[in-house]
């Protein structure tokens, strides 16, 4: 974690210095663009993982069943996933797919690959209202 957060903190510090006397809780349009770009980099990585980039033991990839990450419904999590018998977050369902259709090893819920996958999945679903719990 440390190694990944440090450059980010440095960047943020530079941003504040460049902005001169701005208070710590203020930020510029440039900040927003840069932060969005940081997120988009995760989306891009997730898009590749989703389309065959995951180490899938049987070569099956997420997009085979979910073109453009459809039919995942990230806006409905957490929800009671009847087939897992409990209320789960999206990452748990992603792991189910990795373990079953992909016949591969699940990811830790905070694994960077898991984060990137969710970045992509959410991005393809942007603009859809939250409906937690919806089946």
């Amino acid at each position: 974690m440390k190694t990944t957060t440090r450059p980010y903190l440095l960047l943020a510090a530079c941003g504040i210095m460049l902005a001169g006397s701005a208070a710590a809780d203020e930020f510029t349009k440039a900040d927003l663009d840069r932060w969005q770009a940081e997120y988009q980099a995760s989306v891009d990585k997730g898009e590749k993982l989703f389309h065959g980039g995951l180490k899938s033991k049987n070569t099956v990839s997420c997009d085979q069943c979910h073109p453009n990450a459809t039919n995942i419904h990230p806006e409905t999590y957490p929800k009671f996933q009847q087939q897992l018998g409990k209320v789960v977050v999206l990452g748990e369902m992603i792991n189910w797919c990795i373990m079953n259709p992909l016949e591969s090893e699940p990811l830790a819920l905070d694994d960077p690959d898991m984060v990137d996958l969710q970045s992509y999945i959410h991005w393809e679903r942007r603009g859809v209202a939250l409906e937690p719990g919806k089946h």
């Binding site: 085979q64 069943c65 453009n68």
Partner: peptide, 13 residues
Amino acid sequence: AWPWPYPASYKQA
């Protein structure tokens, strides 16, 4: 083999 979602479920197009 497997089913596909309906295109209308893709909200960006």
